[in-house]
Simulated assay, not measured.
Amino acid sequence: MTTRVKICGITRPADGALAAELGADAIGLVFYEKSPRHVSIGQARAIVAALPPFVSVVALFVNPERALVESVLEGCPVDILQFHGEETAAFCRSFARPYLKAVRVREGGVDLAELARQYHDARGLLTDAYVEGTHGGTGCRFDWDLLPSGGVSLPLILSGGLDEHTIAEAVSRVRPAAVDVSSGVESGKGIKDAARMAAFIKGAKHGSV
């Protein structure tokens, strides 16, 4: 199966539209104020309005208050929720919306099989690099050998330090259901680069750039 691609941290309607035109399956909107890629609900609505049909919209949160998630769902068309903090499985599923659970991977620090059991109704586990004091978007890569060789019971989404130069190897070695990139296709924080997005998506879906 072709690896699916999410371009995360979209901050401008033109970038979202271009990502979709280049073949991205999903775009990510960050509702976390500490992120340089944070968007307001108004900005998010403008980005979504620029997208063609059949491109999924993912709303990313980090340990949010319930009111924030509910306000985003009320104010912006969203397909999937992505939780990047220490949210419980009960909290993630309480919005009656498909969700992804992000996991920061480090040696000896995470049991993906157990997390897959806890978050059994998630659409997938998103694996990212563990960096002290942050919750993603660092551009850092983790050791892919830390992932279970036999896989887990949920689809695996690979993130962390991916770019147009590493994506083909990542897909070949890890065989993830999907890949997620943000800083690896940027010319500046929150500003996507057309050439880098094109090369990344080609590498993910066809194995070479």
Score class of each variant (00 low, 15 high):
Met1Pro: 12
Arg4Ile: 01
Ile7Asp: 09
Ile7Thr: 07
Gly9Asn: 06
Gly9Thr: 12
Ala14Ser: 15
Ala17Pro: 10
Ala17Tyr: 00
Glu21Gly: 13
Ala24Val: 06
Asp25His: 14
Leu29Arg: 04
Glu33Ser: 10
Ala44Tyr: 05
Arg45Cys: 13
Arg45His: 11
Ala46Tyr: 00
Ala49Gly: 11
Ala49Leu: 05
Ala49Trp: 00
Pro52Tyr: 04
Pro53Leu: 07
Phe54Glu: 14
Val58Phe: 00
Asn63Phe: 08
Pro64Tyr: 04
Arg66Trp: 01
Ala67Lys: 08
Leu68Phe: 01
Gly75Glu: 01
Cys76Tyr: 02
Cys76Thr: 10
Ile80Trp: 09
Leu81Asn: 06
Leu81Cys: 07
His84Thr: 01
Glu86Asp: 15
Glu86His: 08
Glu87Met: 09
Ala89His: 02
Ala90Cys: 03
Cys92Ala: 08
Lys101Glu: 07
Ala102Gly: 15
Arg104His: 09
Gly109Met: 09
Asp111Ala: 10
Leu112Lys: 05
Ala113Cys: 12
Tyr119Arg: 06
His120Ser: 10
Gly124Pro: 13
Leu125Ile: 08
Leu126Val: 15
Thr127Ala: 13
Thr127Asn: 02
Val131Cys: 03
Glu132Met: 07
Glu132Asp: 09
Gly133Asp: 08
Thr134Tyr: 05
His135Ser: 14
Gly136Pro: 00
Asp143Glu: 08
Trp144His: 03
Leu146Met: 12
Leu147His: 11
Ser149Gln: 12
Ser149Ala: 14
Val152Met: 05
Pro155Leu: 11
Leu156Asn: 13
Gly160Asn: 11
Gly161Gln: 10
Leu162Trp: 09
Leu162Ala: 15
Asp163Arg: 08
Glu164Tyr: 02
Ile167Gly: 14
Ala168Arg: 03
Arg173His: 08
Arg175Asn: 12
Gly184Gln: 12
Ala204Glu: 03
